[in-house]
Design a protein around this nucleic acid. Structure first.
Length: 569
RNA sequence: CGGGGCGUAGCUCAGCUUGGUAGAGUGCUUGCUUCGGGAGCAAGAAGUCGCAGGUUCGAAUCCUGUCGCCCCGACCA
């Protein structure tokens, strides 16, 4: 591509409404332009990168045996009513009516549509398993779109849906997709991690997210150093150790005027935070004997609200009791609550259950208890995994120590089970002629998000640094004084033609710009390989080569072969 | 949805408190000089000051409404 014919809309200034580096760079380098909140146009150079990522995804899906389809972005509301999600989905789903006043929505996902088609066409077990995928625009009306392409409203997504006769075959395909995802993320040059995700489904349904590691990531990941365990902190388990020291101290009520927080009490009584048990009061689930329920946590731990919401005795979604409700139930302020002589039922987190001789609130203003013990001073409580995992915890699988990383969710593989096939009455006949409801899996990759995510972990002060596999061009040829020197012009044109002939996507900066601006643009748009041709280097029959990642340029022989050698580098 | 902020030249912003001829930088056009890390000088084109009302002799500026966008939070998956 001749840059004189290819508008490079680069700017020096950083747009004020871009918060994260990938968003800033994509605007500055002219990859995207904003049309509205969460809506972006891909300009020619940016689109080249998007298409490359898209093709890698397509190749790997094809290789894994999935079949590409293309479903409409506009979906009939009827199907969503059939699955029951029309009323469940919130404002995230953009709804509208056509001229006949029929309900429609802009696709946020496509389980309903694909299930509808499979129901039309798939009748026999002989036709299964099957895995359909598409790479198509989605729209989710996020309440707060942000971070450019990272959380846009309209985005490009690869979504795949597989159908199976039984859970075993679903599991096989799940791992098949997982392998395909590993290949995709590896090929686009991302440093990533597959982590266990929130798997709410009963029946051992598996769910894993593929995260690109980046400090700007919205998700926190718990990864075992020296082990293989990795999970989204929302889903990271905390296992009981099964050990608790015997009670050795006598129960004693002490005056702790004004000491309301765990930190304050810990310092005031000179006991470590790990020796304190705190009690959170939350709303109980419908049908529980008491409207409130207490959750006991060790002093240094935080509640994991996802886990709490899933506990059968806790109201979902999770809701904390108000100070007034606590006062009514306990007759004291929230700073002095404890599980001993507690007026409401208590569930203890495993870690809180394993503390002996602990300090806790006395359920009386300005007083705490010392030397408290489960079993002796209160009934042995029901226990559950309720706390958030913390760095330094032992890995739940027993191998390694937990460390936190930030990640950007780029993909998700999920065993759906029969949720949609059942709701939408999809059945196929098995070899005995019996109708069977197929098992489903779904597998997504945020294609446009992946572009931003890779960039998020691959940039420097000069701008973008694209991996070869998804760079808009692999090589940029920068002739110095092309207008003045026939030799430079001829050499640059020849190299440009030769590289293209060799199948290398090459940009020729024939704009006649000054060297400074040429180099700055080449760096900003992140072309991985740069060849500079000037009279000085040609005098010694040399080109100047610089890798985008390298500090300095180096001289190479002025030949196509020498350049190709560097690309193989 | 709650709180805060911003809409002025293609882009980034000043001007608004205290009403009186529309500004800068950058980008763009032309010319001359320059030419290895975003050049210099000169000339030039470019804005119904988000939109609609109102107050006023006069509104970018004050008031009301409205739309759009951004940030924090909550919410959702």
């Amino acid at each position: 591509m001749r840059l004189s014919r290819f508008p490079l809309a680069t700017t020096k200034e950083t747009p004020s409404d871009a918060e994260i580096i990938s968003h800033q760079l994509m605007l500055r380098a002219g990859f995207i332009r904003k049309l509205g909140a969460g809506l972006y146009t891909w300009l020619p150079i940016g689109l080249r990168v998007l298409k490359k990522v898209e093709n890698i995804v397509r190749e790997e899906m094809d290789r894994a045996g999935a079949l590409e389809v293309l479903m409409p972005t506009i979906q009939p509301g009827e199907l969503w009513k059939e699955s029951g999600r029309w009323d469940v989905m919130g404002y995230e789903m953009l709804r509208f009516k056509d001229r006949h006043k029929n309900d429609f929505c802009y696709a946020p996902t496509a389980e309903e549509v694909i299930t509808f088609h499979v129901r039309q066409d798939i009748r026999s077990y002989r036709q299964l398993p099957i895995n359909y995928y598409q790479i198509q625009t989605k729209f989710r009306d996020e309440r707060r779109p942000r971070f450019g392409l990272m959380r846009g409203r309209e985005f490009l997504m690869k979504d795949a849906y597989s159908f199976h006769m039984d859970a075993e075959d679903l599991s096989r395909e799940y791992y098949n997709m997982r392998e395909a995802y590993i290949r995709v993320f590896t090929r686009v040059g991302a440093a990533f991690r597959a982590v266990k995700a929130d798997s709410g489904n009963i029946g051992g349904a598996l769910s894993e997210e593929f995260h690109i590691l980046a400090n700007s990531g919205e998700d926190l990941l718990a990864v075992a150093e020296g082990g293989t365990y990795a999970a989204n902190v929302e889903a990271a388990e905390c296992k009981p150790t099964g050990k608790r020291a015997a009670a050795s101290a006598a129960l004693e009520k002490v005056s702790t005027p004004g000491q309301k927080t765990c930190d304050q009490v810990s310092k005031f009584l000179n006991v470590p935070l790990t020796g304190k048990v705190k009690l959170l009061v939350v709303h109980a689930a419908e049908g529980q004997p008491h409207a409130l329920i207490g959750i006991a946590l060790r002093g240094d731990h935080q509640l994991n609200e996802v886990k709490a919401s899933k506990h059968p005795k806790v109201k979902s979604p999770f809701k904390m009791a108000t100070p007034e409700e606590v006062q009514a139930a306990f007759g004291c302020e929230t700073g002095y609550l404890g599980p001993i002589k507690c007026p409401i039922p208590v569930i203890a987190d495993h870690a809180a259950f394993e503390v002996a001789d602990f300090v806790c609130g006395a359920n009386e203003n300005d007083h705490h208890l010392k030397g408290a013990n489960w079993g002796r001073d209160a009934e042995e409580p029901e226990t559950a995994d309720l706390r958030a995992i913390v760095e330094g915890d032992a890995s739940p699988d027993g191998v390694g120590v937990i460390k936190f990383y930030r990640g950007i969710e780029g993909g998700h593989v999920f065993q759906l089970g029969k949720k949609y096939s059942k709701a939408m009455n999809l059945t196929v006949l098995d070899e005995k002629g019996q109708a069977v409801t197929p098992e489903m899996g779904c597998y997504g990759i945020g294609v446009s998000r992946l572009v931003a995510a890779v960039l998020e972990q691959s940039n420097d002060a000069g701008g973008m640094i694209w991996p070869d596999a998804i760079a808009p061009f692999r090589v940029i040829v920068c002739p110095i004084g092309m207008d003045k020197s026939e030799a430079v012009k001829a050499a640059a044109e020849k190299l440009y033609a030769d590289l293209n002939a060799a199948g290398i996507e090459t940009a020729l900066d024939d704009r006649g710009a000054r060297p400074g601006s040429m180099f700055a643009d080449a760096d900003l748009i992140g072309i991985p390989h740069r060849v500079v041709i000037g009279d000085k280097s040609l005098a010694t029959a040399q080109f100047e080569y610089k890798s985008r990642k390298a500090e300095k340029a180096e001289m190479i022989p002025a030949s196509l072969e020498a350049v190709l050698e560097k690309l193989r580098g």
